[in-house]
């Protein structure tokens, strides 16, 4: 799992992009920014990934799978 909490845009998407290059089948992402969640979701979907999100009070766990 990669933890992108606290990073400003577009660093969370770059971190996810780098992680997907290493593990193209699936990646879990923990974010505390609604903006980063939207950007990561849009990026993953544009690259053919299915995105499942599990939001809690201030954080969201995203599961990206091919």
């Amino acid at each position: 799992m990669i933890d992108v909490r606290g990073y400003s845009c577009p660093t969370p998407v770059i971190m996810v992009k780098n992680e997907l290059a290493k593990h193209p089948d699936s990646v879990e992402v923990l974010s505390d920014s609604p903006c980063a969640v939207e950007n990561i979701t849009r990026f993953a979907q544009q690259h053919g990934y299915k995105v499942v999100s599990q939001p809690t009070q201030e954080e969201t766990l995203l599961l990206l799978t091919k």
Binding site: P10, V13, I14, C35, Q46
Partner: peptide, 17 residues
């Protein structure tokens, strides 16, 4: 909307978004 004047050009080059 997350509107950002710099982010638009950045994302177009960096992420094709």
């Amino acid at each position: 909307s997350r509107l950002c004047m710099a982010g638009g050009i950045r994302d177009a080059f960096l992420l094709r978004d």
